[in-house]
Design a protein around this nucleic acid. Structure first.
Lengths: 135, 135
DNA sequence: AGCCCATGCAATTCACAAAAGCCGAAGAAT
DNA sequence: ATTCTTCGGCTTTTGTGAATTGCATGGGCT
């Protein structure tokens, strides 16, 4: 429901994969070490990223993760919503508007507008934009 | 650091005052009852709103609150930031950028852009906009 | 004086974020 | 086949902040 450590770490992880040589399989331990992120926490996050296809997992010795598609095709919004589900700026937008007070309906209308503005930024930036900014 | 019940209730409270006859002093109990908000919680919120001058308090019998300025002069951003201080889309924007990792600096750049987009919506809508939408 | 209502602080409950741990499954190397 | 490595998924713990409640205080009206 908000931008937390999980999303932060997830983006770092995907960014790291994006800067690795194409085809290289990178284990969690390497990502964790380089980006200073708790490994087990990162593992949980990458499970979600894997399920949504943003990254691909490879088990066994010399296993690890690779990107599911090129970094310029992965938007920040995709990463965020893979990890925590649909993004809501406020809890009250999660509940259906039926039977709510006039003041609430009015506030919802406003919040939806604000949220739309935010999601537009989320979906118009890719991981490649972020890694490019790193230099 | 995020859009919570406190901000929600605060906006409801100010909206309610905005719909009352000009000059009327409205006690918390009335606002609480009409907007279905816990009275003590609302009291705390209104302390902040009072300190920042958005509402004016009147003590004693027949006391209560009035608006500090007309509702078309009160932006949503003012209400939010009165209640919870500066609005940050993410915790990591609260800390100074000095000495952070390249990935973090890159993410900050992105988050600042997203946050700016959001604050623009917050500051370009007033309480009057919200009460007008109620009809 | 007595009542009413805001003020301010303390305490509590509750939910969720953040992290750590454990055991199992899959796959490669030998 | 066995062993080692790495992900998979579940459970539990810890920490933090949201959301509330309670009480004692103080100012103003009648």
């Amino acid at each position: 429901m908000q931008f937390t450590k999980a999303e932060e770490y997830g983006i770092f992880g995907v960014m790291y994969l994006a800067t690795q040589p194409k085809g290289k399989v990178t284990p969690l331990s390497e990502i964790s070490e380089n980006q200073h992120v708790p490994e087990k926490f990162l593992a949980k996050i990458f499970q979600s990223l894997c399920r949504s296809g943003l990254v691909r997992s490879h088990r066994g010795v010399k296993g690890g993760f690779t990107l599911g598609k090129t970094s310029d095709k992965i938007t920040v919004k995709e990463v965020i919503e893979s990890i925590q589900g649909p993004y809501y700026i406020s809890k009250c937008l999660m509940e259906p508007p039926a039977g709510q007070s006039p003041a609430m309906l009015s506030l919802r209308k406003f919040l939806e507008r604000a949220q739309g503005s935010l999601l537009k930024v989320f979906s118009s930036h890719t991981i490649k934009d972020l890694t490019d900014w790193q230099d």
